[in-house]
């Protein structure tokens, strides 16, 4: 990447030293276990639910050719993408506010974002029934105000799945954008203003491009987490709103078909990894943004 060229003459041990704790942990607890998954994907499930050691391409054939999996996969990527875009659009506003507002309570505002996490995921996901349900708060207020005569059925469809996901993912997005906004040198926007830019122009030309690393990191996180979720569709989705991780969970836990579950998860893993590779290239390109300074 950047200025380290002068430091990196010959073999430089320092980055490897810095990386070693993380890499050793990931290798031991993730990469090696993942090999088991690869091996498993070529096995078969016996009639009782045990694993049959063999070499078979049946799981892969099924996973790659069955339109059922393809459709759910597309649905998963769509839901994850919608949720991510919503998070980016909605999340930028509070991130900007926290970064630039003349308030002493920045830390508090940030901590508050994580507040919903103190109430367990299942509980807070289930509690939407008290807000959006037919006898929930929103319907109650609208009935009382005379906007509607009958409660509206709002829950258990794709919209509520996205809503639940956005609620879960938004803090990650906001924090990532904030961290990036907060690191921007204020003199840059001031300079832009003094050169005659309007506030909006200064934002578009200076602030927004410089906050792209945060936006990108937040989006990657949101997309990946969104694509790997299974509890939200279970609690807030109707029939047909399943996501890919539900299939993985069902194959592994309900059907005890670990070989098939392995193949399914490797497919998801491959797709998401490709995305990360694109991201890291994108972040590399983004270094151009630094020449702005």
């Amino acid at each position: 990447m950047s200025a380290s060229g002068s430091l990196a003459t010959g073999f430089d041990r320092r980055p490897w030293l810095l990386l070693s704790p993380a890499l050793v942990s990931v290798a031991l607890l993730l990469v090696v276990p993942a090999m088991f998954i690869v091996v498993y994907s070529f096995w078969l499930r016996t009639a009782t639910g045990a694993d049959q050691v063999t070499f078979s391409l049946d799981n892969w054939r099924e996973v790659l050719t069955d339109p059922f999996y393809r459709d759910i996969l597309i649905q998963t990527l769509r839901i994850a993408a919608i949720s991510t875009i919503t998070c980016a659009l909605v999340g930028y506003i509070p991130a900007y506010y926290i970064a630039y507002a003349p308030t002493r309570h920045k830390t508090l505002l940030l901590v508050l974002l994580m507040l919903p996490f103190w109430v367990s995921y299942i509980i807070r996901t289930m509690s939407w029934i008290n807000i959006l349900g037919v006898s929930g708060a929103v319907n109650g207020v609208m009935l009382w105000a005379g906007i509607i005569d009958e409660p509206i059925q709002m829950l258990y469809n794709e919209v509520t799945v996205v809503l639940g996901l956005v609620h879960f993912l938004l803090p990650f997005m906001i924090l990532n954008i904030y961290v990036s906004l907060d690191g921007i040198d204020r003199s840059l926007t001031d300079a832009a203003r003094s050169l005659g830019c309007t506030g909006w122009q200064a934002f578009r030309e200076v602030t927004l491009p410089l906050s792209v690393p945060g936006l990108a990191a937040g989006s990657l996180l949101c997309f990946v987490l969104g694509a790997g979720t299974y509890i939200t569709p279970m609690v807030l989705g109707g029939p047909g709103d399943a996501m890919f991780a539900n299939l993985v969970f069902e194959a592994i836990v309900t059907q005890l078909d670990w070989p098939l579950g392995s193949a399914l998860s490797l497919l998801l893993l491959a797709l998401l990894s490709a995305l990360v590779l694109v991201y890291s290239r994108f972040l590399g390109i983004d270094q151009i943004a630094k020449s702005f300074r």
Binding site: M126, N130, V134, S135, P239
Partner: peptide, 19 residues
């Protein structure tokens, strides 16, 4: 169907809230 439920807690809240 409106919803497949997965636990007793969910069943009870769906019935109690008249979903």
């Amino acid at each position: 169907l409106l919803k497949y439920w997965g636990s007793g807690a969910e069943l009870m809240s769906l019935l109690a809230e008249e979903e």
